[in-house]
Design a protein around this nucleic acid. Sequence first.
RNA 1: GGGCGCUUAGUUCAGUUGGUUUAGAACACCUGCCUUACAAGCAGGGGGUCGGGGGUUCGAAUCCCUCAGCGCCCA
Length: 886
Amino acid sequence: MTQELSKRYDSSLIEDKWYQHWLDQNYFHSEPNPEKEPYTIVIPPPNVTGILTLGHVLNNTMQDILIRWRRMQGREACWIPGTDHASIATETKVVNMLREKGFTKHEIGRDEFLKHAMEWKDKYGGIIIEQLKKLGASCDWERERFTMDEGYDTAVLHSFVELYNAGYIYRGKRLVNWCPATKSAISDEEVIYQERNSHLWHMRYPIKDSTDYLVVATTRPETMLGDSGIAVHPDDERYQDLIGKQVVLPLVGREIPVFADDYVDKEFGTGCVKVTPSHDPNDWEMGKRHNLEFINIFNEDASLNENVPGPFIGLDRFEAREAVIEQLNELDLMEKIEEHVHKVGYSERGNVPIEPYESEQWFMNMTELVKPALAAVREDKIKFHPAHWTKTYEHWMGNIKDWCISRQLWWGHRIPVYTCQDCAEIMVQVEAPTACSKCGSSSLKQDADVLDTWASSWLWPFAVHQWPEEDKDLDYYYPTNDLVTGPDIIFFWVARMIMAGYEFKGDIPFENVYFTSIIRDGQGRKMSKSLGNSPDPLDLIKKYGADALRFGVMLIAPKGQDILFSEERLEVSRNFMNKVWNASRFVLMNKDFDLTADHINPDKWQNLELADRWILHRLNKTIERVTGLLEGFSFDETARALWDFIWNDFCDWYIEMIKQRLYEGTEAQKQTAMSVAVYVLRDIMKMMHPYAPFMSEEIWQQVKLENEPDIVVAEWPSVSEHFHAPEEAKQADFLKKVITAIRTIRSEMNVPPSQKIKLVGRVHSEAQLNILSQAKTNIAKLTRADDIEFGMDTVKPEFSASAMVEKMELFIPLEGLIDLEKEVERLEKEISTTEGLLKSVEGKLANKNFVDRAPEAVVAKEKDKLDHYAQSLKKLVDHLETMKTL
RNA sequence: GGGCGCUUAGUUCAGUUGGUUUAGAACACCUGCCUUACAAGCAGGGGGUCGGGGGUUCGAAUCCCUCAGCGCCCA
């Protein structure tokens, strides 16, 4: 079974092989199993036409880690994948595609357009799904859903009908965020505010029956054509006599009232505000309060309509601005123009400034829906990680407005509202009616709009099953356990899923929500296509391997902070993968037996040495730590814990420590060392598997027993009381310190590695002597010494460098090689460090308050330190004296 | 304007409820090594007083106040 491994880890040779094998074995598929506890995650469905980004890598790796880990723990793990139809984003792409072919969507009509859109989706959709497979995602692909596939479609319409019947959904004329480019309403969350350098225009409005005028300041002069009032603050002394008067709107000639309203900020501009109820949300409110005229001056594309004076009709809004300014200048009605910086709302998709615009839309009243959803998070039924997101959530939920759910688009779920053309009866139902329920007419017309994308994806955690049908899968897998997603969609999606969960299932949709960080480039800029700073994950997989990409991204993903990504970070983790590979290679090269259950049965191990007990103790600690960290969603710390154990403990120390036994020991010694090494390596592979599924499977195949399963479904390691050995761990630490101290001297004295040394040690206790005597041959090998003498009363050789480790003195006689000056320098440095430590402890103990008030244990510890440092210092000074006399 | 968060070696970050260490790691840097797992490696080393100021405490990177800078979200 054992085969030769290459010197360098080559990911390209194994990734596709194992992924196919896992699919063939159907490991990712889950069925309800009453014997097992389910563990469920639903994927945040990526846009169907999207391609994999580093953001996807980040959050899908986390989900895969959770799923693979829980699967190994014996849970019935089910990760449900799928894609989102992404109404506005996809429609925009299809429209662009048609434009290139020379059509507009209106030219070909709705049905034809939808055909094109579906073709486009079939052709370009789902690329991202294939890319997720390259990443190693262990989704249950048999359960893949699309938010517009057949059953899902029904679920969305069903939810609409239910909410309509409950009285939550209504149609109304409101001011909405209007995107003139796509000619559709968009939600508040789709508006992106950007800072712009602009102007504040101060315009004069003549007062009726007077030669006087007042001055209003505005950032949007063109909207003056729709003004129907002037507002001032009720307490503003400057304008008291104006309240109740009329002014004559320039260019239009309309007489409009001056009134007082609290909303006005006296400090801004002149304190007089022009009020355009149809084109500003605040003015809309004031218009309602003061019964003003609502004058809509825009067409759907934001050009001026016939409600403005003739010369302006048909102008685009930006042209209109210039025209208004010019006319006012000519009439000497422009008082002044100031520089002004303000934020302009842009349509996320259309990428043009949005226009507050009055239109008929469908709305969802959120008042009742919010209540249980808010309580669930407050009462910790749903936990956010990091927890501070609960504040953001509560703040938004507490100030929620009605949700505009209709979009003037074609790609999506068409609103299931039918109006009889004869008697105006309205029918709201899932199945399209064939005749009017009131008059029997067959002349029915369906509402033209489609639903906001989020009004379908908010059902995701249960609509991926057969909901609203009775469904045993739904019963088994709902509520799901964990959700991993970006904080940018906490309102769009997370909050709404919680509301939908309660409304339609009467239960939470998930227990935990882990919010990932935002990935930025090395300079902290957002990843974007235009900056070209957004690497293609597929290229990275080719270059570094999927495992290294996964591990690397986890390593740099701190909880709750932005991630600064750069390729160097991946080199680091590729190096780590190579390290793990080579450590495995070492073990396999030295394993000269076929693995049996006895080899990995700790009860059968004979004559364990200190190094063995130490590494097993460390293994225990690592299993405990890694499991605990995963439970707390600490993906980065888990990666670091694995790194530390594998590289520092296992590779740098344990493997080096057993080489002597392997190369020079007896058969029995060799077998013990190898058994322990194999045992540890097996657990390392299991713990690495969620992070590095491909490599861990490849290695696992070499160290598993014949009747054991593939690593995907192998058992997650658990802590063994057997291996608990804190005393031995301390002893091993002492041993390591001794070895390091000797190496330091060699290095600082410039003793070449080829030069063997003599070593004399004067120990401080029998215990120390014991440890060192037993490890003598090992110490010799690891420090390249050929003559070692340890004892309580060993004599210090005259020409020697020295060091102290836990009150033990080490001497390296290097007659002829030792550089006296260097050694004096070294000792002086050491002395000064020790003096510093001593001083600090003395200072503490000299403080009466400290001795009196600090806990006894803390004081005792300090006294111990004092004693230790004082002794060390004395010996170091002694050594220095002798050196100087030579 | 409101809310949330951040500020620790050249860089990116750890540092759990204040006390096992005059602050740890990785990368970068310096020195020496191709030592039969790994040069994508091994051994060793230098480097920060924890954004500024104030306070609580026997003791603060860690808690409180304040100032400054940066970032995000919402209006």
